[in-house]
Design a protein around this nucleic acid. Structure first.
Lengths: 215, 215
DNA sequence: GATGCATGCAAGTGGTTGCTTGCACGGCGC
DNA sequence: GCGCCGTGCAAGCAACCACTTGCATGCATC
């Protein structure tokens, strides 16, 4: 029934469908069951292919799941909206940016949770997991530096070291707020009484006031 | 069921050692390996007792691990330093409080990570996991309300709803900053360049400025 | 000494896991 | 027609899993 079409090679544009189906199924199963819970039988069933195909195409379960995780990490971050090169309306710009961050984090929520849980046993997932978050933090810091340079920050005349320290902490705090919101909203709803669509604007408002920025 | 007590050694305050040894070993193994990875053989070996003892004392592996998790969650939160009833030096008081929070979170880091990972498959751990964090958030909110009442917040005259919304978000943001610091410092060190002992003071400083509090 | 109890030890249960093997089928280029 | 290759199917393997059973042992109380 599922025989979707064409097939491999030729001009090699699309992979043999089994490979792709397995990678996506593995990502789904892993996100809800973790490495140990993602059995080859379950992944194969989810993908609608035979179990042996996993070993023929990937060699081992670990290789398949690594491929799946890396696929997920490699495909999405490029969709991120960059912050503008020169700030004009910090509140609006940051809010929009934070909203896409939140969306991204919420979408990957269960995968990120699994990776956090398996961090102790499979430390090789660390670079893969943080690779998704790190460029975002860098982007935020670049934008903050421009906020200082363009005079959006009032009391920025203090000594450089203290300013940097505070700016780093503020950036980390904003990222943590987004992360915590995306991760914690379903586990502890009483801690997040506001509707999710208000979250970004609220965090950004607090963030800008914390760094003394005239929004 | 929990008839500890009985028996030996005269005034016998101490439980039969096997039970306690197993609970602590289970907590350790679970924190690094998760539910599926925490095999009864491994726990028994870690505890230095025979594997059958697990089933004689707890009936099943799940019961043992539940007991271990609940034991960890039940024992520690009482050590928390409460925030003062009437604020005097918000910055100092909050910083001290945040430092104990950070300490607690860092100590339980791997256990919390595991619980997050298994949240999708074993949702019954949710209340147990959030029970550790929730009272802290409540305590923070009580303290914040007193900050408003005692006149520590400058522009608090705005409409009530907006103030509450912002205060909630600010509280969530501070808790998230602590959580993210405790969880992320080892996974993404470049995001936390400051030494860990400065963290609490920095977050509190930003937090107080965000809610317009005169520290 | 006898009884009760917690524990250790050895063996074994049925089930699941990752992975392999052997074989058959069908579409493709030659 | 004829290989080639990707795939499905059935069977099976050794290892591991949670859990059980039966028996021996040590210790404390009676």
């Amino acid at each position: 029934m599922i025989d979707s079409a064409h097939h491999p090679t030729g001009s090699g544009a699309s992979q043999p469908p089994s490979r792709e189906k397995l990678i996506e199924a593995a990502a789904r199963v892993y996100a809800t069951a973790g490495f140990r819970g993602a059995t080859t039988r379950r992944i194969a069933e989810e993908a609608g292919v035979n179990e042996v195909t996993i070993f023929r195409l990937f060699g081992s379960k670990a290789a398949l799941i690594d491929a799946a995780i890396q696929h997920r990490a490699a495909v999405q971050p490029f969709e991120t909206v960059p912050l503008p090169e020169t700030p004009r309306h910090p509140a609006a710009e940051l809010t929009a940016w934070c909203e896409t961050q939140l969306e991204m984090l919420r979408e990957r929520r269960s995968l990120i949770r699994q990776q956090m849980g398996e961090l102790a046993e499979r430390p090789q997932v660390v670079p893969c997991a943080s690779r998704a978050l790190n460029p975002q933090a860098v982007e935020l810091k670049r934008y903050m530096r421009r906020l200082y340079e363009e005079g959006f920050v009032e009391g920025a005349s203090r000594r450089r070291a203290g300013r940097d320290e505070e700016a780093h902490a503020a950036g980390a705090m904003l990222m943590a707020a987004l992360f915590g919101d995306a991760m914690g909203r379903d586990m502890m709803p009483e801690m997040y009484p506001q509707p999710p669509e208000r979250a970004a604007a609220l965090y950004v408002g607090l963030f800008l006031r914390a760094i003394r920025c005239t929004s």
